[in-house]
Amino acid sequence: MSDAKSRMIARAARDIAPGMTVNLGIGLPTQVVNHLPANFPVCLHTENGLTGIGPTLPPDAADRNLIDAGGAYVSTVPGSAFFDSATSFALVRSGRLDLTMLGAFEVAENGDLANWKIPGKFSPGAGGGMELAQKARRVAVLTTHTDRAGNPKLLTRCTLPLTAAACVDRIFTDMAVIDVTPAGFALRELAQGVTVADVRHATGAPLHIPGDAIPIF
């Protein structure tokens, strides 16, 4: 993984506050857990029916019945609980999930998120993504700022089918931390070695720049 991606993931981890219940989506967000301090007080939830996710285990140490929603073999911690799928999503929809971190194909300046379908190319179904995006109290996105072809993923409007409308609060990318505000995208922090002009150039929507100094991560 590139340094920029690692720094993005480490930066995202700093938004997890002590005491939160958090769901980390499949892909980059799952790795956020590796950047939490040891003994950090947080409860991680996974859709397939576990709160209190412990460390990921190699195959030889794994329990065949204990996975996360992405299929990784995980473990429990003291205080973990198992439950059925209805209970798992009751936790999501009732507002008990303080934060979810999700991947994205596109995010719009009003917070619309598209991360589940590219018509004609990729349509495996949304899994639990719609409920996470729509009902977690806070939704953060972790994504590269542009796609592999260099096209912006932060746009005025999403072109792909939505996962949920107006749901994203904050976006962590390899270039910046950007909040979704009533006025659109607002730059909060810059990655090391990245300029405001770089971020503007790589963003497909207007970007509000704060008047004071921009923190670097």
Binding site: S85, F89, R93, G125, A126, G128
Partner: peptide, 15 residues
């Protein structure tokens, strides 16, 4: 033929 459901909605529809 495939019908996709949101995961928690599949659970609730079954429940």
């Amino acid at each position: 033929e495939v019908e996709f459901c949101a995961q928690g909605m599949l659970a609730e529809r079954i429940r």
